[in-house]
Design a protein around this nucleic acid. Structure first.
Lengths: 225, 225
DNA sequence: GCAATAGTGTCTGTCAGACACTATGAC
DNA sequence: GTCATAGTGTCTGACAGACACTATTGC
């Protein structure tokens, strides 16, 4: 294992890679080699390859998924002597949103709603939960969930993404109004056809990073089933 | 200078210490020993003293001001090979809000509005500005400025703090409504007397960290003078 | 009384929530 | 026609902004 200078902490990165498939959020985890417990993908800075920390995070994602993250955000940097045994370690935690349409089958994707059923190493369950909390918070007042969407999507699909993150129902009219008036979406000349009225397809406008709405969105609580 | 392992970046902390005196924000800066340019206070983790990164930040503040920070927040962690010459360095940037009533005279406090007149080392001016931008953003929808206040304060003093951070005028009625309805303030049995009607004194309720309002506050633009 | 600042009453505007409504496709 | 989902019209309620008003002190 890499070690820092004797008097200096080592530095590592951990990435919470999230994707959404069929209105459920999945996180990418891998078994720890010795204990078989699940851990977050992690890497160290490779000073001869990585231009900066963000680049190292994107490398970490690409090495595992062979696809680029739509969005990465630094959540926090934790550093103490106790998180990992016998080592004063500083770790920057990131989340990475990716769009990947493949079904999250037997491989390394776990639905975040059922994480407590698995055995996660260290404090990784807590770290994931605090990041999800942040993502959910930001979903209330930003356009962040746009980064979980495919290239083309309908308004209903976007609304389902928001609803899945917030775990509430949103009103269709309010949601459309908010999104359309934000000017973030580009209506395409195409529609998605089904057994019903065709739905307008949208794209995220070029250059979008994140939009901060001036009011929060709450929605109505989903009933317990 | 402390160095990380040959293949690992070194880790450091930089702290933007802010205080408010007479409705102006001041930042604590110190001259770099060799160039006399101004730099942010900075420290390295001392693995035998610091319990965690936050503790190291508080130590950094205390060593310089002999007082505790009211609030610290990690802004971001920057890491690359170019910010400091010849060294792949990872740095966590924090801001620390302190209340200190002493006049910011000849010593190390600089009004943030005039920083461009001074010569700051490296990218420190940019780092300070991006942190201030964040503080200003959060001032629009959180109770963060409460941490810049003394133990007891009037509603008008609090409003002036918000106005100074946002650089806008706020409506007195809306501001009072928002603050009082938030339930964050404890009215004291005391008033501040002057040449006018005495003003109710308030204290921040115990346990307050930060409150997120459901709408932004904008205010009206201050006229150019 | 006046000056100064504290604090209120109340109207408007904006936007989220609610929810009934219409529109357009497949069949 | 029916069913299904897309999309609209329009009212309400919460809360920020505007601004004129009253209240309480020192002098």
């Amino acid at each position: 294992m890499l070690q820092g200078h004797i008097n200096q902490p080592a530095f590592s990165l951990e990435v919470i890679i999230l994707k959404m498939v069929n209105n459920a959020i999945f996180v990418y985890l891998q078994p720890e080699s010795t204990t078989e417990k699940l851990i977050l993908p992690s890497t160290h800075i490779n000073v001869s390859v990585d231009k900066n920390v963000d680049a190292a995070v994107r490398r970490c994602v690409f090495e595992r998924l062979s696809c680029d993250a739509s969005y990465i955000e630094q959540v926090k940097t934790i550093g103490n002597a106790t998180r990992y045994p016998q080592k004063w370690m500083v770790t920057s935690i990131y989340f990475a949103l990716v769009f990947e349409s493949r079904e999250p089958q037997q491989d390394a994707w776990y639905p975040v709603s059922t994480l407590s059923q698995y055995s996660l190493a260290y404090d990784h369950l807590g770290v994931i939960n605090s990041c999800l909390k942040r993502l959910r918070n930001k979903t209330q007042y930003t356009s962040m969930p746009l980064h979980l969407m495919p290239n083309e999507f309908t308004m209903t699909e976007l609304q389902l993404a928001y609803e899945c993150l917030l775990d509430t129902f949103l009103d269709k009219k309010s949601f459309r109004r908010r999104m359309l008036e934000s000017g973030l979406l580009l209506p395409l000349a195409r529609t998605r056809r089904g057994q019903n009225r065709p739905a307008q397809l949208y794209q995220v406008k070029l250059g979008h990073i994140i939009h901060h709405f001036s009011r929060n969105m709450h929605g109505s609580v989903k009933e317990e089933v």
